[in-house]
């Protein structure tokens, strides 16, 4: 059974077609990345799944039910951490769950520990480093009750070293909780390293250019990044993106 299915999804603003006949799915417990250059309509896609926009055509299904125009069917992690400055970290991470009912506080404690944030649980976000804020924002999404996690370029603002740490941490925690993930990124390496499947979008309008399934073994470690197999994949993806440009 598929968890998320996108069917012939099209959206235009005025005469500008942004998304053109997108078709893909995210299976239960699968990690799918959407890879495309900036301005390829990736955010528009998230706005559609998040129920903020209505599509011109097509359908979005979660567990075979259409969620078109319905807000709050996914848990969400934005590009900036967007933590609330007047809430402590502990209060911040349960916000997503709070919107949908009573948060599971025991699970929240457990997650704080996993993220190494126990010591700063009572601190306010302004006291945290960039990586810590992102971890808190990810836990907030993970603690939300929805089964689909949408991550919108969550690590793009971090420096290279922190980003690799965050990716490894994300993989380890995802392996434990195994939610379906839809991950937007413009980094080829990040997409290859993290995902089961990569959907490559073209720009203006966004169409699906290719879908890759690299099948690297899990659990993955940073050594993978330098293997010939990985680099070959990287080349292939890069050439696909650059083709007919």
């Amino acid at each position: 059974m598929s968890n998320l299915v996108i069917k012939q999804l099209s959206k235009s603003f005025g005469s500008k077609i942004v998304l053109d006949q997108l078709c893909f799915d995210v299976k239960l417990g699968e990690f799918v990345s959407i890879l495309g250059p900036s301005g390829s309509g990736k955010s528009t896609l998230f706005h559609l799944i998040g129920g903020r926009y209505l599509p011109d055509q097509g359908d979005i299904l979660i567990d075979n039910k259409s969620i078109v125009g319905q807000a709050g069917q996914m848990s969400y992690m934005p590009q900036s951490p967007s933590l609330f400055p007047w809430r402590t970290i502990r209060e911040n991470i349960v916000l997503g769950a709070e919107l949908k009912g009573k948060p599971d506080l025991a699970l929240a404690e457990q997650m704080l520990k996993k993220a190494g944030l126990t010591e700063v649980a009572d601190a306010y976000p302004s006291a945290l480093s960039g990586g810590m804020k992102q971890r808190a924002a990810f836990i907030r999404a993970l603690l939300s009750p929805q089964d689909l996690l949408c991550l919108d370029e969550p690590f793009s603002a971090l420096d290279e070293f922190t980003r690799l740490d965050m990716q490894n941490w994300l993989l380890s925690i995802w392996q434990t909780y195994r939610k379906s993930v839809l991950f937007i990124t413009h980094s080829i390496e990040e997409a290859l390293y993290l995902s089961d499947r990569i959907v490559i979008l073209s720009t203006n309008p966004a169409r699906i250019k290719a879908v890759f399934e690299p099948k690297f073994e899990r659990p993955r470690a940073p050594e993978l990044l330098l293997t010939d197999d990985f680099l070959a994949w990287k080349r292939r993806v890069y050439q696909t993106i650059k083709a007919d440009h």
Partner: peptide, 24 residues
């Protein structure tokens, strides 16, 4: 950005007011 998060996470108008706008 905080508003964007609340809307994407499916917060109701009431939740947006009491959890975001007013404390802010």
């Amino acid at each position: 950005e905080l508003m964007h998060y609340m809307q994407m996470a499916g917060a109701s108008k009431q939740q947006i007011f009491f959890k975001l706008e007013f404390p802010h």
